[in-house]
């Protein structure tokens, strides 16, 4: 049982890294973005604060990695598997089909952790990043965020009949969250109507939670964000349980 799960997860992980676009957008793109903005704004503390641009940008860029694996990575790979009959091939082996999905989620989680480590390394080495948080709390928030965004990704991933349609639907979800949730740009820069719109995007809550904990906040100070993310997790997996199509 564990060997099957391990082999499947390792296979999915290797396949993800062999795909140049997946590799670039999850691991390289957030890093480039951070280097670009970091070189513009540097990391000197803001007036009257104990943190600079990079210190709140790193958790936001971690949000981009979570978004990319959870929405685009999950949807494109599962819809391609559906289109090509690969899910069907797995279904004809004596394993639980859920094992395939669990392995897919696990490998995406490992890739998300890798993306996070790359950003942290660059933040520390290049920009002297500061961290005021509590590591277990931040890690809990990271896991919850990854789970909830993957659960959200399961909504298009459950239904998209082809890789192409999966890509289109996931882009419709990806880009608004990338630009409006505070991931790529601080939400403070948005006009007020977009700022209130961004409250309905799950990634906004991911970013608020991660940034808050990063700069010394505690979990109990973010009940709304945690509740929203738990709700999205339950809703997304419930949707998949009811509507997921194997072929």
């Amino acid at each position: 049982m564990f060997k099957r799960y391990f082999n499947l997860t390792r296979m999915e992980f290797v396949l993800y890294l062999r795909e140049p676009s997946g590799f670039f957008f999850t691991l390289i793109f957030p890093l480039l973005l951070m280097m670009l903005f970091g070189s513009i704004w540097g990391n000197d503390p803001f007036p009257g604060e104990n943190f600079g641009y990079i210190d709140f940008a790193v958790p936001a860029f971690i949000g981009i990695v979570i978004l990319t694996t959870g929405i685009s990575g999950l949807t494109t790979s599962i819809s391609a598997y559906r289109e090509k009959g690969i899910l069907r091939r797995f279904k004809s082996a004596p394993i639980s089909p859920l094992l395939v999905l669990t392995a897919e989620l696990s490998s995406l989680f490992i890739i998300t952790v890798l993306g996070m480590l790359l950003l942290l390394a660059a933040g520390v080495i290049v920009f002297g990043m500061r961290f005021y948080g509590n590591i277990p709390e931040v890690f809990f928030a990271f896991v919850l965020s990854t789970l909830s965004i993957s659960a959200l990704g399961f909504i298009p991933a459950s239904l998209a009949p082809t890789a192409r349609s999966g890509m289109i639907i996931s882009n419709v979800m990806y880009f608004p969250m990338l630009f409006l949730s505070g991931a790529a740009l601080p939400r403070e820069m948005l006009p007020s109507f977009l700022k209130s719109f961004s409250q309905i995007l799950p990634l906004t809550h991911v970013i608020e939670l991660l940034q808050g904990l990063w700069l010394g906040g505690h979990l109990w100070e973010y009940p709304v964000q945690i509740l929203v993310l738990c709700g999205v997790t339950v809703a997304g997996f419930a949707f998949a349980a009811k509507y997921f199509r194997w072929e």
Binding site: M11, L15, R18, E19, A80, K84, G85, I86, R88, R89
Partner: peptide, 14 residues
């Protein structure tokens, strides 16, 4: 199965 594929970048031995 009649209509089936594998991931493009999966090797035969894998």
């Amino acid at each position: 199965q009649q209509e089936s594929e594998l991931p493009d970048r999966m090797k035969v031995w894998e």
